[in-house]
Design a protein around this nucleic acid. Structure first.
Lengths: 227, 227
DNA sequence: GAATGCGCTTGTGTATACAGAGACCGTGAG
DNA sequence: CTCACGGTCTCTGTATACACAAGCGCATTC
């Protein structure tokens, strides 16, 4: 049969509303503290209140918005404390993920990624478009990790972390020095996974996350010293 | 003012539906594979379809039910593979949590818990009621850990794990030998936290989880050898 | 007798109408 | 001038009505 492999994706209105709101929050179009009124947002997105409520409920489950005491929902804040908390969880999850990936059998995907990361420094010279490409490469790295560990619970927890990480990355964006260093750190993690050195993979991940956190906090302190 | 400390809790219909369905799934009244039809469940729980949909959406976010390809939602299965996956995540989270708790400043709560755990063996002689009390004690232990680490992201991930763990515990229930051993393991973790020995707390947690997983898998293999 | 096509039934997705609760603002008193 | 109280107004929570899509069964035909 020539039928498509998967369902044509029903594309519900609630899915559209969820995706649009999520992207707008992650892109910073809806800054932290923005209140989301049902009637207002449903009119703006061209959907009814019912699917919009479902979308907001999913955002609440993601931790991107929170119900306020009385009226409405608001986009959650990303304080310095919560960034540290997020990195604490991220360390626990990604160190374990790196360990499991290094123990995994199939390393071909990581070998292919290694070649791409070798070209990352040149990519970061190419301006905004190159930086976008670099982040896409990071996403592929994450996807390869997910594929290697094959643990839906761990992948789900990692996905939550990465969602919030997107918001944090906005402040670190446009720091080519840091991104070049991060590419080198990813290469070390990749080498450890390819060599099957689980301990090194975990330690290299820890180092990478430590440096990443320090960079983010430094950028944050430089941008908003008074807060 | 003599006003109550927190809001009187509006107690929405969707909250009731969520709580009832969640408890029924965790208690096994709604076994894995049960299909949830909106009209059917809304009539049974005495709420309309709208709040029921919200409740089901939350259950989907919890991973307790999953949308099926065509029609309806069904309670998720707990396979041996998913149990192993869950314990993998649980190890990563709880070892980190134990480490952070041991580094924490306030250990009075853990000292009080230590006394209670010393009395746990006697509790486990008291039949079904004692076992229930013991699980309540475990919950207080978990709450003390949450309080000590004070990390909403980590606590949230732990909460997800514990939700699924409740379903798994059903098979291990009624194994006093294992529960007595588990109490001793908790005592060791408590001692490590009280002594501020983060490394020992993490290692003791690892050992505890290893033994717990082995016990669960053994019980599962004994109960359903043919599956 | 088997296979295929059509129609009915059923269940989800969405929109809207209605009720209740909380907040904001204005006014009045101290 | 400030604080408290009350009214109004808006926003959420819930129920219901409607449309569409998918699945199942029956009938008809080969």
């Amino acid at each position: 049969m020539y039928t498509e492999t998967v369902r044509p994706a029903p594309e519900r209105a609630s899915d559209r509303a969820y995706r649009v709101l999520r992207d707008e929050i992650l892109d910073g179009l809806l800054p932290a503290g923005t209140v989301l009124l049902e009637v207002e947002q449903s009119a703006r997105l061209g959907v009814s209140r019912t699917p919009l409520r479902a979308a907001v409920a999913r955002l609440v489950a993601d931790g991107l918005v929170a119900g306020r005491s009385g009226r409405g929902f608001s986009v959650t804040e990303m304080s310095v404390d919560s960034i540290n908390d997020l990195y604490e969880l991220r360390e626990a999850l990604e160190e374990r993920a790196a360990t499991l990936a290094a123990r995994g059998a199939d390393r071909s995907a990581f070998r292919a990624l290694r070649e791409r990361f070798l070209a990352a420094p040149a990519l970061l010279e190419a301006g905004e478009h190159g930086i976008h490409e670099y982040y896409a490469l990071i996403d592929e790295f994450d996807a390869a990790i997910d594929d290697a560990i094959g643990n839906s619970f761990l992948v789900g927890a990692l996905d939550t972390v990465r969602t919030h990480l997107v918001r944090i990355r906005r402040v670190a964006r446009g720091n080519p020095v840091r991104l070049r260093a991060a590419a080198a750190e990813h290469l070390l993690i990749l080498d450890a996974i390819i060599d099957g050195d689980a301990a090194l993979a975990a330690h290299a991940t820890h180092v990478h996350l430590h440096l990443s956190r320090a960079s983010v906090l430094a950028m944050l302190g430089a941008n908003e010293p008074a807060s």
